[in-house]
Amino acid sequence: MRRYNPFYFILEALKSLKRNGVMTFASVAVLMSCLVVIGGFSLLVYNIDVNLENFGVMNKIEVFSNFDAGAGELEALERDIRALDNVEEVTHTTKAERLAAIKKDYDAYEDITDEENPLSDSFEVTYKDNKKVPELEMQLKQLNGVRKLTNRYDLAKKIENFKNTVMMIFLWFLIILFVVSLFIIVNTIKLALSSRKREIEIMRYVGASKWFITLPFIIEGVLIGAVSAVISFFIVKGAYSVVTRQMGDMTQVITTVNISPYNTLILLGFLGIGILTGIIGSLISIAKHLNT
């Protein structure tokens, strides 16, 4: 019965990490930057999405009727809107409903009675194709009984564009960082391999199996990945809470998401990416520098 001591592998990996301390530090530092960027980027995009949703500006135009429009005119207007090509859905809000909503949000308007209602009815138009919004706006303006339109499409588009730019920059940044991390891990493991060259040679000649020889190096990669992941998690958590606190003080318009419920998910994600990168780095190094 052949028995292998599991601590042997971990011990060998730890010894090697310590022996090549500078490279270990470099590996962890770069992989950590990579994970912090991934984390920061994901949280930023997630926050942008949540805010876009809150604005309700994604694909909606609000159409306001004339102030003196009667029930029949309003019905006709709604029908006309529905008949347009690019319209997906229409929600009619009466001026009384709008006033009630405003009263609920702002105490100062509480005294206004229905007779004094300064508002008009509105139709929230959800459109299908945001490339054809300018045409839709033209068509809506020409309909009978339309007083004005508000379309926050431009704002939404600006935010979308911002989001896309952010994504592109981060993506490139991420690719570069990821390649650098892999490169450094590959070299760390290469160093570990070369400092145990003699040992590996003897192991091969006495018939140690390939997995026995390579496992300590893979564990080294796993440890680099795991340590980077845990440190990154705390950095991202800390930085996020500082940033959201400042944002909260600055403006009430932007909502920041509370990420505490996602702690486990974020940590697991980091661990997954970190460990996977470590393993890939080890495997590349082993394939390149260990001919068994």
């Binding site: 091969r204 000649y205 006495v206 018939g207 140690a208 199996s209 390939k210 068994t292």
Partner: peptide, 13 residues
């Protein structure tokens, strides 16, 4: 390749 280690256990070098 995977059998080579087993073979080498029968050798002393």
């Amino acid at each position: 390749g995977y059998r080579v280690p087993h073979y080498r256990r029968e050798l002393g070098v």
